[in-house]
Simulated assay, not measured.
Amino acid sequence: MITYVWAEDKKHQIGYQGRLPWHLPADLKYFKSQTMGHPILMGRKTFDSLPHILPGRHHLVLTHSQDFKNKYKDNQQVTVFLNKKELYTYLEKNNDEDICAIGGVSIFKILLDKVDCLKKTAIDASFKADTVMPQIDYSKFVLIKEEKHEADNKNEYAYSFLTYVRKDKDHG
């Protein structure tokens, strides 16, 4: 099963200069709770944006860089794929695992037909950004959970945690 885990603003923006455009501690806590114990799938730029290898999660990274693959070949917490075919083979062999795709745009785009669950943090604000979430056909999903939160002394913006599941579970 593939789950997207991401945060976006009111304009569906997700990044600015390789980083999140906002600071929302509740979203970081939510991200950790949703991904802990699951493999996290990302592109190399998203991997590079992490502060370090995140504990308790196997990192799956798609890149074209053989040097990057060589750098992590002995690291048990990181598996590197050099192309979509390698990635798809891994996903087929591990389709009973809940794999969390966390970005960037290229990862979200290539898995649009394969994603089973969407876990979105919708931030009720707009930010300066240079990266937009690919368009998702929400008519193919049903909203099963919504948690609304107002801004508070730790979280400057109102936000909602939204969970969607694909209506047609037989999507290949």
Rank of each mutant, 00 (worst) to 15 (best):
W6A: 10
Q13A: 14
D168R: 11
I14M: 02
R57D: 09
E8R: 11
Y30F: 14
N70C: 04
T121D: 08
C117M: 14
L91R: 07
E146G: 04
E147V: 10
Y164D: 08
L111T: 14
D116E: 14
M1W: 09
F108T: 00
L82V: 03
E146Q: 15
K85L: 02
I53W: 06
F127D: 10
G103Q: 03
K73R: 12
K71A: 09
H59T: 05
V80W: 05
P25Y: 08
W22G: 09
D48C: 04
D113G: 04
H52W: 00
W6P: 05
D67Q: 12
V142Q: 11
R57C: 06
E150Y: 08
H59P: 06
K84F: 10
V5P: 04
A151Y: 00
T63I: 10
F141W: 04
N83Y: 09
Y4C: 01
I123V: 12
L50Y: 05
L20S: 12
L60G: 04
D137V: 01
K71S: 02
E97M: 13
N75L: 04
D124T: 10
K84T: 11
S126A: 13
N70W: 00
K167M: 08
V142G: 02
L118Q: 11
L111S: 09
F81D: 05
L91E: 07
K154I: 05
Q135A: 14
K93A: 14
C100A: 15
N94M: 07
E150M: 05
L162N: 09
N70H: 14
L111R: 07
